[in-house]
Design a binder for these strands. Structure first.
Length: 592
RNA sequence: UGGCUUAUAGUUCAAUGGAUGAGAACACUUCACUACGAAUGAAGAAAUGAAAGUUCGAAUCUUUCUAAGCCAACCA
């Protein structure tokens, strides 16, 4: 149990004992004490000062007196400044805490709670390779699933692949027109990139054809509809829906290429899924909802036969759920898929990692499910994140300004390689060990960079400035870990001796206090669905350790007891760093 | 026109309504390797978009304004 959740009931009890005053735990504010004041944790008293009709100083003294007297094993001192009661926690409390947790590899993880959470992420189109924006999505999705697992949930990672539709047909038709039967194998190009090239070729050709038609006197809008390549694409979509064998064959072949490419990338960056859904299988789902909704009076039919839901009472608009020709729209499929997922996994919570441009859509989805009284509606949750933009604005594939995911990773690996060679600390590594190390550092830098920011904020990535390895970065944290491991290797075997006691130095104390907060940090990241909380914490921990490390020697400590104590402190720090980074999907090296 | 989101040092990010110093990092100016690993540490300078309100107390809540982004498709 965290120290704060131990202090709270004690404070509640103190108020009851002293003044017969009832206050609920959540109404009490307990913070870490600001560094400029004496103490570890602070009880803010303003909230009940008025009701008790005493001065803050008097209250603080009385409560402080009561707390230290009745709990001498926890509190050793207090002071009052204005409305703040600063409490000092006993050295022995911290030392005991350290001794019972320092070697634990799963400090902060909770036992299973029996609930299942689905996390849907990545969700690519199969007409082009993954880019930097997908990476943010993938890292976020993977990490939040990992954090939920640590918090006791059973997690199911899923992915809905947008493998059909007009945009897929575009690259298909361009391949028919221009490829002369070329394939990823014949050209040596990775499958997703190969297909992406034809998507670009489509757009080039389309633009050309439209321009020609305009020159021949056609209006632009009309030309956009009449361009032969576009008409061909639309025909292809109809053929696909009709199940025409040649079209299906081509579609399967090209999608297969893309999947091969995606698999390589996913594997490289450590993404994985329990369940893949394909839009080609789900795009007809959801129609049963229409009947159901009409029967319940949640939906209504217009004269032309189309079916709608009126959400104006909820501050939204009327939303179409079925076209007049009886075909379903995007939201209908999503209703169907939500239901299918529930049938399959009986989730308590279903998190969709999707960019913030779909905030409205996701709101509508949840609202409709609620109105249909679906048992899983409440569990629908949108983990909305801001787009990754370039200094010039949004990435646009048609303008060639997209930062490709594979390129990005390769570039980071290069930087890691150069930096490592420059420092020359791992010259004895084998080729394979070096390769692994470069990947660890490169992906550590990249993942940390994308995860350290609050998801809902959009972020700007400047390709000119490569991702830094100093300061608030993955490699900084990894380096700290490697350095600690280096100390621990030197002290191998000497751990189980007498434990250090005696007065804690300020930096030792600060470090333990920070370590003690780790489980609370995981809880926060879990409830807020926000991995950046972990990234910030783990960075602060590394920084704190580095400060401690330069100030106090571990191996040459003042006494053998101190040495053992600091070894424990170091070990726990390394464990928590490794654990926290693991929640972000980042590995930490023994040496770097 | 409506809805949602964002606005904090030169830049990129923090801060459950709490402390007359709003924290970091990068960049900038200094200093520290005969040291358990300098991919480090220490010191310095630098910010709450504007205005009102709510209260013991506001970067945080409310209102208005300004700027940016997204959405409001029988597109996905």
């Amino acid at each position: 149990m965290s120290i704060i959740s131990q202090i709270k009931p004690l404070a509640v009890k103190a108020l009851k004992d002293l003044y017969n005053y009832d206050i609920a735990g959540p109404d009490l504010t307990i913070n870490t004490t600001k560094p400029e004041f004496e103490g570890d944790y602070t009880l803010v008293m303003f909230s009940f000062v008025k009701q008790l009709k005493k001065s803050p100083e008097q209250l603080g003294n009385e409560i402080g007196e009561h707390l230290t007297k009745s709990n001498p094993e926890i509190f050793t001192a207090f002071n009052v400044i204005k409305g703040f009661l600063n409490l000092t926690v006993a050295d022995n409390y911290w030392i005991n805490f350290l001794q019972s947790n320092f070697s634990s590899k799963d400090f902060g993880s909770k036992p299973g709670n029996g609930e299942t959470v689905m996390v849907e992420y990545s969700s690519p189109n199969t007409n082009k390779p993954l880019h930097l924006g997908h990476l943010r999505n993938i890292f976020l999705g993977w990490s939040i699933a990992r954090i939920l697992k640590e918090s006791g949930y059973k997690t199911v990672k899923s992915c809905i692949v947008n493998d059909r539709g007009i945009h897929i047909c575009k690259s298909m038709i361009a391949w028919q027109l221009f490829a002369n039967g070329a394939s990823p194998r014949s050209t040596g190009i990775k499958g997703d990139h190969f297909v992406g090239e034809y998507y670009v070729k489509f757009n080039d050709e389309y633009k050309k054809q439209v321009e020609e038609l305009v020159i021949r006197g056609m209006k632009k809008e009309e030309a956009e509809k009449e361009a032969p390549i576009m008409k061909g694409t639309q025909q292809m979509l109809l053929d696909w829906e009709a199940g025409k064998p040649e079209v299906i064959g081509l579609w399967e072949k090209m999608n297969g290429w893309v999947y091969e490419g995606f698999d390589i990338t996913y594997k490289r960056i450590g993404a994985d899924f329990h369940k893949m859904y394909y839009e080609s299988n789900t795009y007809l789902l959801g129609k049963q909802f229409v009947e159901e909704g009409l029967k319940q009076g949640v939906f209504f039919r217009k004269d032309d036969g189309s079916v709608w839901i009126d959400l104006t009472a909820d501050g939204l608009d009327e939303k179409l759920v079925l076209r007049k020709d009886g075909t379903s729209v995007y939201i209908t499929q999503d209703l169907g898929l939500a239901d299918q997922k529930y049938e399959e996994f009986k989730y308590n919570q279903s998190i969709y990692v999707i960019a913030d441009e779909q905030n409205y859509h996701m709101k509508v989805l949840k609202l409709i499910l609620q109105k249909l009284n679906k048992p899983y509606a409440e569990g629908i949750d949108h983990l909305s994140y801001g787009m990754v933009e370039l200094p010039s604005g949004r990435m646009k594939s048609r303008e060639g300004t997209v930062v490709d995911a594979d390129d990005m990773v390769a570039e980071m690996v290069n930087v890691a390689k150069h930096k490592t060679e420059e420092l020359g600390k791992v010259k004895d590594f084998t080729e394979a060990e070096l390769k692994e190390l470069y990947d660890t550092i490169a992906l550590g830098a990249l993942k940390f960079f994308l995860l350290r920011v609050d998801p809902k904020k959009r972020m700007i990535f400047n390709p000119e400035e490569s991702i830094d390895f100093h300061g608030f970065t993955g490699p900084f944290v990894q380096y700290t870990h490697a350095r600690i491991r280096s100390i621990l290797r030197k002290a191998e075997g000497t751990r189980d001796k007498a434990q250090g006691t005696g007065g804690l130095l300020k930096l030792e104390r600060d470090l333990i206090i920070l370590l003690e907060q780790y489980p609370t940090i995981i809880e926060q990241a879990c409830t807020e669905h926000n991995p950046s909380v972990i990234a910030i914490y783990v960075f602060n921990l590394a920084k704190m350790f580095n400060t401690f490390y330069t100030e106090h020697s571990v191996m040459n400590a003042e006494s053998e007891e101190k040495k053992q104590f600091r070894l424990q402190l170091s070990e726990m720090t390394a464990n928590v760093i490794a654990s926290g980074m693991g929640l972000l999907g980042i590995k930490v090296p023994e040496r770097m």
